[in-house]
Simulated assay, not measured.
Amino acid sequence: MKKFLLVVTVFLFSLSFSQNNKGKLFIIGGGSRPDFLVDRMVKEAGLNPGDAVAIFPQASSEQDSSFYYAKQQFEKRNLKAVNYAFKKGEKLPSSKLDSLKKAKLIYVGGGDQVIFMDIINTYPEVKNILQESYEKGNMIAGTSAGAAIMSEVMITGNQLKYKDYENTFDNIESQNVETSSGMGFIKSAVIDQHFVVRSRYNRLLSLIIENPGYQGIGIDEGTAILVKNNNKAEVVGRAQVIVFKNPKNSKSSYTEKLGSRGITLDIYLNGDEFTF
């Protein structure tokens, strides 16, 4: 009996440890990054002066500029910014991959999330390092496009029914929100960015009506969510985070327009916490 209890105790401890051994996510909704937001990111990542930050600027059409502006903020805090820019077909030296494995903070810049995933998917060894780094307890951070890639279901920004790209959708319609696969650090929610500034309510509402198993998390500019223990988030920043839920799995339609009942909306401010 004592042996059985010991085995159960060890199992429960190992299970608890494995569930809480994942790292942290720092997901920024885009725009400028206030100092206190960056300071919190650095602190939560456990960085000390001289430590390296791995920066991925691939989502940007101007990778040099994307790296430069991120570099400025990290070097201001006596950190070493390392550029992990690469293009399809480029051979990555093993030394660079080895140094990436040691980074406590991996930061993905803004731009186009589809471009980032298209590149990263052609380098499975890099993608695996990012995922393993998170599993080992390190921080993965990102802004704008770098925020969108955090979820398993990733909003691309495109509409399936309309060819022209728009910052916001002017409709709540069925089968219109284009999604693809992101990095999958978040399984139970979908991230949207620049949320309040660009009025992106319609596309996130459309998504959770058609995919009620997910929550929709809209993060505004200059604002982030710090995610710990897989699904516990704290708001850090100067604006809001909007969370939509469709707890009743409600969906109706009429001439392709979507309807729903019982959708909930929560608006969180700096310091507020929520689970998803």
Rank of each mutant, 00 (worst) to 15 (best):
K87M: 09
L97V: 09
K104T: 05
L105M: 07
L79Q: 04
S95M: 01
F86K: 03
Q73H: 13
K71Q: 13
S95V: 11
S94T: 07
K88P: 01
K101F: 03
E75Y: 01
Q72D: 12
F86L: 11
P93S: 14
K96M: 13
Y84N: 11
E90M: 10
K101I: 01
A81V: 12
K101Q: 11
Y107S: 01
D98A: 15
L100G: 02
E75A: 03
K101H: 01
G89E: 05
K76G: 04
K101A: 11
P93F: 06
K71N: 09
Y68T: 12
Y84Q: 11
L79W: 02
P93G: 06
S94D: 11
A103K: 02
K71T: 04
K88S: 12
D98N: 15
I106V: 15
Y69K: 04
L92E: 02
L97S: 08
G89I: 05
A85L: 03
L105R: 07
K76T: 07
K104I: 05
A70R: 13
V82Q: 06
A70D: 14
K71C: 05
Y68M: 14
N83S: 05
A81I: 13
R77D: 02
L97A: 13
D98H: 11
L100A: 05
K80Q: 12
N83K: 09
S66E: 15
